[in-house]
Simulated assay, not measured.
Amino acid sequence: MSDILVVGGGIIGLLTARELARVGAAVTLIEMGETGRESSWAGSGVLAPLYPWRVPEAVDALARLSHALYPDLVAELVATTGIDPEYTVSGMLILDPEDLDRALDWGQRRAQRMEVLDAAQTAALEPELGVYPERALHLPEVAQIRPPALTKAIRRAIERKIAIREREEICELLIAGDRVCGVRTPRAQIVAEQVIICAGAWTVKLLEQLGTVPEIRPVRGQMLLFHAKPNQIQRIALDQRRYVIPRRDGRVLVGSTLEHAGFDQQTTAEAKESLYQDAVQLFPVLRRAPIEDHWSGLRPGSPNGIPYIVAYPEISGLYFNAGHFRNGLTLGPASAQLMADLVLGRAPILDPRPYALDALRA
């Protein structure tokens, strides 16, 4: 018997399982595919909301706490697994800060380093840019990470401490009276005292049998990967909600679309062309770089991007940690700690009320 069952093996599920295993809980993690292969694998790896002053306070609070937790998390993963998630403080250059006064006010209140640049200063930071606006905003403390390496490292770190069941889909939550007692899959009934749903865009499907469900819907995002040369582009660049992210090895990620296409994960020629044109307009040097890959992922969209980190109100022992929209990697460490606090009855690291099922998300 497992004390705690975590459903979903993306970044949220992996980090939640890790938090619980750290205190000695008997944890089983179940994933319908392979761990870390859905939206976590497809994500950008930017460890900050793209326009951080525009997100709700509930998202900002998780982002700031996760920002503080990431360096130690990555150092521990590298030391224990030998896998380097490539945590890099590359900074982020925002080329369309339309609400600049609001951004600067946010930065001052959060003690966030921000630099307003003119066209010449922007050109000095990124000589390969194709456009130099009159005003740009530089956030030098923004970090990034390689999502596939991160999820691989977390799995390696916990795989001897928990039971992992992959390629096993949940058919039904097992409920006895007003209490959860496990799940049923095509292979077995898995008994657990507590069940935590961390299934991203698929969370609602798992909870439909209960009637009351969180407002989470899949939002498809398509991305391109260029095989460029190292150091041609120095930092994350953001313009009109399109981002360009240089990796250490020279690869450059460009994203992303926001598409309401249900659970359809197909890529499209139209999105590929749109991403390509936006990329080469921002950085003409990418015209000389071959496209290495084009993929999509399903983000767990929620109202205003505020995740649900909460006990299910009508079923004892049932929890869910989902709905992070495009910020699962950004908010993951803090979300996992808050979820573990609620499950274990510890004092929560953050006020959990903004993440409740009935919290206002307008």
Results as ranks from 00 to 15, higher is better:
G107S: 06
V74E: 04
G91E: 02
L77P: 08
T81F: 02
D105Y: 09
I94M: 12
V78L: 06
D96R: 08
A111Y: 13
R64Q: 07
P56M: 08
A103L: 06
Q108I: 10
D84W: 02
R54F: 08
L69E: 08
H67N: 04
D84F: 04
L62D: 07
E98W: 06
L77C: 07
G107R: 02
A68S: 15
V78A: 01
A75P: 00
R110S: 09
V55R: 10
L62F: 11
L65Q: 08
L100I: 14
L95F: 11
P97L: 09
A61V: 04
A63C: 10
V74N: 01
L93W: 03
R54V: 10
T88W: 00
W106I: 14
T88I: 05
G82F: 13
A61P: 05
P56A: 11
A111S: 15
G82W: 13
T81A: 04
Q108V: 12
G107P: 08
Q108G: 13
G82T: 07
V89F: 04
I83Y: 07
T80N: 03
R64W: 14
W106L: 08
D105T: 12
Y70N: 02
A68V: 12
P52W: 01
G107W: 02
R109G: 04
Q108S: 15
W53I: 12
D99Y: 07
V78R: 01
L77W: 08
D96N: 06
A61Q: 09
R109F: 12
L104P: 01
R102T: 14
A75C: 15
D96Y: 12
V55P: 02
S90I: 00
A75K: 14
V89A: 06
E57G: 12
W53F: 02
V59M: 04
E98G: 05
D101F: 12
R102P: 01
D101I: 11
Y87C: 00
G82S: 05
P97A: 03
Q112K: 07
G82H: 10
H67Y: 11
I83K: 01
A68F: 13
L95Q: 05
V74A: 06
L65R: 05
D84H: 07
R102V: 13
D96P: 09
Y51E: 09
R102W: 14
W106K: 08
R54H: 09
P52T: 11
R64F: 14
W106H: 07
Y51R: 10
H67M: 05
E76V: 09
P97I: 03
E98Y: 03
V78D: 06
R64D: 03
W53C: 01
E86T: 00
R102F: 14
L65C: 04
E57R: 14
P56D: 09
Q112R: 13
A58G: 13
P52S: 06
A63Y: 10
A111D: 13
R54T: 10
G91V: 04
L95W: 02
R102C: 11
L100Y: 14
R54E: 07
I94F: 12
Y51A: 11
D96C: 04
H67E: 12
A61N: 10
P52M: 05
A58K: 09
W106Q: 10
L104T: 09
D101V: 11
S66H: 04
D96G: 07
Q112G: 06
L95R: 03
L100E: 07
A103S: 09
P85T: 02
E98M: 13
